[in-house]
Design a protein around this nucleic acid. Structure first.
Length: 116
RNA sequence: CAGGCUGACCGGGCGAUCGCGGUCUUGCGCUUUUCGCGAGAUCGAGGAAAGUCCGCACUCCAAAGAGCACGGCGUCGGGGAAACCCCGGGGCGGAGCAAUCUGCCGGAGCAGGGCCACAGAAACAAACAGCCCCAUCCGCAAGGGUGAGGUGAUGGUGAAACGGUGGUGUAAGAGACCACCGGCAUCCGCAGCAAUGCGGGUGGCCAGGCAACCCCCGCCGGGAGCAAGGUCAAGCAGGGACGAAACCGUCCGAGGACGGGAGGAGGCUGCUCGCCCCCUUACGUGCACUCUCCCUCGGGAGAGAGCCAGUCCCGGGUAGGCCGCUAGAGAGGCGCGGAGACGCGCUUCCCAGAAAGAUGAUCGCCCAGGCAGACGCAGGGAUGGAGUCCUUCGGGAUGUAAACCUGCAUCCAGAUCUGCCGGACAGAAUGUGGCUUACAGGUCAGUCUGAAGA
RNA sequence: GGUCCCGUGGUGUAGUGGCUUAACAUGCGGCCCUGUCAAGGCCGAGACCGCGGGUUCGAAUCCCGUCGGGACCG
């Protein structure tokens, strides 16, 4: 995923985490907040509970890869934050994509909600 | 062949598609750098990148000072920039049949303190029982009581009791003395660079253990850390000078400079000394106004309501951008020296530099490995199977898979084939030397033990 | 990057060289009490002190290493 679609600043993370609305799934937690920017920006995060550095990096890669394919279907003008949970370290790519798709649908952020 | 031990090493490979970060070149947006979007080339995690247990480089703290405190280390020689590091020795132990592995290492003799439960007379300089002698009392005597003294052999405890055996000696005894042995210290000789070992002489039997208790001796350590530190833009906090006149002295260009005193903040990330640097000496015993009182007419006391404005200059920290930021005690190869750690020489190479933090995903083939299933092996063997070759198309040559025969094995193992599973521990964050810990599976060399065969 | 603390029955703590194969509370099991339950009384089980070495005659305690958990500072 290109860097311009990413959340990079610490203050952005704090803002989304504080004022965004959250949606939970056993594998991942989604925070969403409306923004005045045109595109969608995504930040990924993995806490210590997920595992060591290998597991944390792997879960973050997994979330970015899964989000990449879902990006065109996402409603623009919002900042998203994805927080990995411990079971995600054992999950595959397709599993992660389905989890994310479900979460985005619940948040009302998918352009074609009934397709998937 | 099986199981170990030691050392060294590998840590999946290839291809396709999608995707990420750096550098260089290049096209476009756009006008140069910058920035954004593309294209191409190239590079892109480890043996531990980990834990952060020791070092070092580097940066800042004024210079990086002294002492104390505190902490660490402590056999010998060598290596190394250094290290709670490495190599090779020594001494005392421990594990194993063995190869081999492994723990400890200044001082408890004269620096001193402390502790050694229980038991025991006594836990480090003491005397409970006992033994002996003398005095005295009782008794015919044997012997017993009391008191003064000698002794430390005997006892039993304990983890540990002040050398052992034999003799001389004595009232009884005792290293009090003698011989031998053990141990300690010291001297000499030999071997070794040394620690130390071996042999001989001398000494006095004094001298228990614990310094991973305090401590003593020797050596080492200033502190903080790349969020170090530098820099850029924008602000803000804050500060300074003049205003402004009041500690003392000196100087002159007359308002400042320098020096000293006093007080305070900070720094040497514990303390003290010493030193450095800064501030104050104007929120007060102040300034100036009004009123009242006193007076030696200089001033003093009390009360009231006020003043400390303004101007100019300097200018952070954090967050953000950039630098620091990767060419170095560097890596590979070859040769030489050395027992080894390691060193030297030549040569080739440039080998991640991210910043919510880049190496992955999917598929195919292979390589190790694991599990399950199938299959007896070798030789001979045809009115001659499939295939191949020749052909005049009639056939011929070659040819052992099978049945069958012989031998050997026997439901085990090995080899072969098929299917399925399947790749450990773990991710750079300034660099680097060690140590420690985690780790599927495999390779090579040396070596030990066991079994079988020759 | 740096610093510190804690691991002891199921749970929470004490014990910091020996008289302690470890104490207290709560929880657990059995019995008594009661018509029954609770409370109460009596009895009992439950730990080789996170793990591995070492020092010592002797270690939960001292030293070293290691594993896990937690806290703090920038």
């Amino acid at each position: 995923m290109k860097r311009r679609f990413r959340l990079t600043r610490s203050t952005d993370f704090k803002r989304v985490r504080r004022y965004g609305k959250s949606y939970a799934h056993p594998l991942v937690v989604l925070y969403a907040l409306k923004s005045d920017r045109p595109g969608v920006r995504v930040g990924v995060s993995a806490g210590v509970r997920v595992g060591g550095a290998v597991e944390r990096n792997r879960t973050k890669r997994l979330l970015r890869e899964a989000m990449k394919t879902l990006l065109p279907e996402t409603v623009p003008g919002s900042d998203l934050m994805l927080i990995a949970r411990p079971p995600l370290a054992e999950a595959g790519l397709e599993e992660t994509r389905q989890a994310l798709s479900g979460l985005l649908q619940r948040a009302g952020l998918l352009v074609h909600p009934h397709d998937s």
